[in-house]
Design a protein around this nucleic acid. Structure first.
Lengths: 146, 146
DNA sequence: TTCCTTGCAAACGATTTGCATTGGA
DNA sequence: TCCAATGCAAATCGTTTGCAAGGAA
């Protein structure tokens, strides 16, 4: 999604939550937008020039998450990683490097995604488990670490 | 895998690592064996009667992981969850309850697993990413939380 | 003025580590 | 005897929170 459009959507969401879309929050949203995969708080802070204090950053991430703008992932040891919610970034999965820990977004062809979804429904349905979503994590070594 | 056989395998692995298979470590392995999904350190400690100090438990889990006997997962916010490695427990995936955080093991039919594997190889191969494994996490509400 | 937002410092909670003690081969 | 294993307490690290100051409506 282009910056302008995304910004508008986020502004609307935050407004409907009764919170402001401040300069600091815009900076975090922009950092999330340009990222090629979920980012840790430290990585986001660095990407923004280390200006925003971590406490403010975490608070912003919490506000964004409550507004449904961002989501947190915990696949990597100990550190949370944040990214735009899928209604803003599109549905995708993750390549996780087992050497350096970097996480990269990856999209699957619609047909495959469809198949995967059927699989998920089929396997969970019989267990009284109501499916809300799925996440496929592919583990291996990234180009740099091979 | 039956307890006896698993115990033998673990004993062999630890022995080849030059570490002992002590009473405390056996207790942790047994707690992991009977679990129906990855357990947090606190859950394991409770399952074992709260006798083993957390520091020892964490050290044991580290030893087991280094020996390839157990693995750690971080899908839930803040807490690590541990389970037997797949060569001991069999390949499986996880149902994660987005309400209570509980994680349950789930196995897929061989055919579906095969399909999934092909999907993974296909999607990651073109990116210079060498695949070591995959993990499908199904998010939703468990029977108790629906 | 009235809240929302921010920054700093302190608090928290899960996990790790230092160190002295215990225990198995 | 000797070194791995253990328990306790203290340290670490990512994340959260209390509180007073700053800012927009």
């Amino acid at each position: 999604m282009p910056q302008q459009e995304l910004d508008r959507q986020v502004a609307e969401r935050l407004s409907s939550e009764g919170v402001r879309y401040t300069v600091g929050r815009r900076a975090v949203v922009e950092a999330l937008r340009v990222a090629t995969g979920p980012q840790s708080a430290a990585e986001l802070q660095f990407a923004m020039g280390s200006s925003l204090p971590l406490s403010s950053l975490y608070r912003t991430l919490m506000v964004l998450e409550e507004a449904g703008v961002s989501v947190a992932h915990f696949s990597t040891k100990g550190v949370a990683r944040y990214e735009m919610a899928e209604w803003l970034s599109g549905h995708h999965h993750h390549l996780v490097c087992i050497v350096c820990g970097q996480v990269e977004d990856i999209e699957m062809a619609a047909g495959q995604e469809q198949m995967l979804h059927q699989m998920v429904i089929g396997v969970a349905g019989g267990l009284g488990f109501s499916v809300a979503g799925h996440a496929l994590e592919i583990q291996g070594q990234c180009r740099d670490c091979s």
